[in-house]
Design a protein around this nucleic acid. Structure first.
Length: 335
DNA sequence: AAAGATTTCAACCGCCCTAAG
DNA sequence: CCTTAGGGCGGTTGAAATCTT
């Protein structure tokens, strides 16, 4: 697409706005509205491009802008929304009246991102960083962290990640699934079970597996869908991603995310989930969570269905493997 | 007190989407 | 259907502010 020549004129002023320029812009918009941004600078007597005027207005001069430090509640909301929407700052800003996308983006990059990194997490994925794959490193990191007085939203959200051994167990499960997937009779059991469980899922239960999403926020109401390298899976469209995010966001915060974790660790291996029957998701999703907007609008409320087909992950796996293993077996592995 | 390092955030860049002609 | 203008958005930059030594 041909780029707009709007700001190509070298004679137009760039850089910081002076109070006089601000006043001209505010006065003009108060009197006439902004109308066409391209035409505005000339009409308002400004030697700026329209784009620059729009940015100055929307990010700084607009009367409803809320300035100052972000509250804990705002930070909490940002983290939640980012876990679902990713770097969709404008969509996150919709939920924070008076805050601009630019401000939120800056806040994320200068504050929240730093906290994530300090906690050994990838701020983009909300996952342990790839370079911390070694459980030894992670354990060391976690053991050196002071969790005794965690109060910030991020720390609160990360509290449940302190059990590094859980990762080992997930790894074990991943390996088991790989074995299963090579063609044992167990894979047929899974296939049957997945049909059974899918009855309670969203219209497209497979979505949740397509991109290799994952989360570690086992008790955080909004889960963190993440793309990570998966040789077997071609990343989907942004819409797919959001649909997945939406689905996971609605899943039961405790049990569902356990399964989410597990499933996605499976898909992060060479296991191509699209070529296979999806693993049972073990949870139901509330119908009201079937659109992104609805999810966003309900962000403050955990979107939990009370109708899970099984009461916990151990029973679920016991159910899945009923012939081979019992509840206690999976309890040992997962619990 | 001063110099250097680090952080913050306003502003810009360039890509993308959409609607109008 | 194609082209183009207008505007939105996310990523990046760099000057100013703040912190550290």
């Amino acid at each position: 697409m041909v780029r707009s020549p709007c700001c190509d004129d070298g004679s137009l002023k760039k850089g910081p706005w002076t109070p006089e320029e601000d006043q001209k812009l505010v006065d003009y918009i108060k009197r006439h509205g902004h109308g066409s941004w391209r035409a505005l600078p000339k009409l308002a007597g400004l030697n700026r491009c329209g784009k620059s005027c729009r940015l100055r207005w929307t990010n700084y001069l607009r009367p409803d802008i809320k300035r100052g430090k972000f509250s804990e509640e705002e930070e909490r909301i940002i983290i939640k929304l980012h876990s679902v929407l990713g770097n969709k700052w404008s969509r996150i800003a919709v939920h924070l009246p008076g805050r601009t996308d630019n401000e939120i983006k800056n806040f994320w990059n200068t504050h929240v991102k730093k906290k994530f990194l300090q906690m050994g997490l990838d701020p983009n994925t909300h996952q342990p960083r790839a370079d911390l794959n070694s459980l030894v490193n992670l354990s060391q990191l976690l053991s050196t962290a002071n969790f005794s007085n965690l109060t910030s939203p991020l720390e609160d959200a990360l509290r449940l990640q302190t059990d590094a051994t859980r990762l080992t167990k997930i790894q074990l499960l991943q390996n088991i699934l790989q074995i299963i997937n090579t063609g044992s009779t167990l894979s047929r059991n899974i296939e049957g079970a997945s049909h059974q469980w899918s009855r309670n899922l969203t219209p497209t239960p497979l979505e949740g597996f397509v991109n290799g999403t994952s989360t570690l926020y086992t008790e955080y109401p909004i889960l963190a869908p993440v793309e990570f390298p998966n040789p077997g899976v071609t990343p989907g469209s942004h819409n797919d991603y959001q649909a997945i995010s939406n689905s996971w966001a609605c899943i039961d915060g405790g049990f569902g995310s356990e399964v989410h974790n597990f499933n996605n660790n499976c898909s992060s291996s060479s296991y191509d989930i699209r070529a296979e029957q999806p693993l049972p998701a073990l949870v139901s999703v509330s119908p009201e969570c079937s659109s992104v907007n609805q999810t966003e609008s309900k962000m403050n409320l955990p979107c939990i269905s009370p109708h899970s087909s099984t009461s916990n992950i151990f029973e679920a796996w016991g159910e899945l493997m009923d012939d081979e293993t019992g509840v206690s077996y999976w309890k040992d592995i997962l619990g």
